[in-house]
Design a binder for these strands. Sequence first.
DNA 1: TCTGGGGTCCTAGGACCC
DNA 2: TCTGGGGTCCTAGGACCC
Length: 416
Amino acid sequence: MSFALVDCNNFYVSCERVFDPGLEGRPVVVLSNNDGCIIARSNEAKALGLPMGAPVFRYRRVIRQHGVAVFSSNYALYGDMSQRVMSTLQAAVPEVEAYSIDEAFLHLAPALRTPAFARDLRERVWRWTGIPTSIGLGPTKTLAKIANRFAKRHAPHGVCCLTARNADALLARVPVEDVWGIGPRYAARLQAHGLRTARDLRDADDRWIRQHLTVVGLRTVWELRGRSCLPLEQVRPPRKAILCSRSFGTPQRDLAGIREAVTAFAARVGEKLRRQGSVAAVVSVFLTTKDHGPGPSYSNRATTTLSIPTSYTPDLIRAAHAGLERIYRPGFVYRKAGVMVTGIQPAPDRQGDLFAAPPAPEQSALMDTIDAINRRWGRGTLCFGASGLDRPWQMNQQRRSPRFTTRWNELPVAGT
DNA sequence: TCTGGGGTCCTAGGACCC
DNA sequence: TCTGGGGTCCTAGGACCC
């Protein structure tokens, strides 16, 4: 057992509960951006049959009937709580990979590969952060994932160890579509070929897997056999693409409104770029009417290559606007747009342009100042005028809880 | 009326070069 | 009658993850 997977239970719901204990024992759901879909559910909400990813408007009745508590997503809160969980883990174990906002892989030294250690760790995270977790232990990441699934569903103390002795029995109980790395398409292909459980997949023929599931699927099979192919990645490599996109709170017809949104997206992309110390050479902008009903639809994207890679927001905005002018067609009702940058490189060894003037040093000083102010006082304290003031395109978030841990004026109050 | 957002990796195929 | 071969880079599309 070398790997542990620590997974926060119903993470977003658990975060809401930390600051409102009255939610304990009640059905609670958290919605996606724009209050569209259900993306987190308490156990009580799962028991009511509210599905993951379902559009919330279809379940209004159930929600009202059972008094389900509904929250807009509050990423400022969840991100901060996630950091607290991660630093608790890092205080206990040197090798931690923060895999997602609510999951971490740990590499365990031989002395720590015990259920007792996992139970203690779980207890510690609970006491220090208020977040309940489940922990799975296994010889590979994929097997630790499977152990975690059992920990969550069947283990009384939220801990499960997959060992050479119980592997066969556990894998036989896992449907193949629940294996990490097997999505709906691969699952259908495997089932059609008679492979239904994780154990079937483990014992499948390498050549067939390689041919139908590529090397990625083959790695999964090897991991199921106990051969570790996916190492612990403690340092996140810098992103190769950075994207900001949103569905509009109100659908937009006119170029002006869309241009405002695209301005804000480009500014956000600039922030993310600078935070990881990078510059980007390529700016793409996309626009879509995509809807779930009939009616005329149109989607397009435009890509602009910059002469000098940059993270300077006005340059990104200019490129995004230019792209938008090229793809905008009047007469459609647009629902979503986005800005993406690629061709990302570290800022220091940026490739210069032989024929263009180097960027003025004031540019980075200005960006640093804006970033510092927005970090201190909250995102959007300072923003670019071209992103507009009314912002009808901005997403709906009618039920967001306060940003308890990241805004001074939204701190929880103990007594009055 | 109302269906999220942000990433990764792999493969195939075309353009281009020598 | 009968098209060279091998390498690299880029893009689009498909699959997956949370």
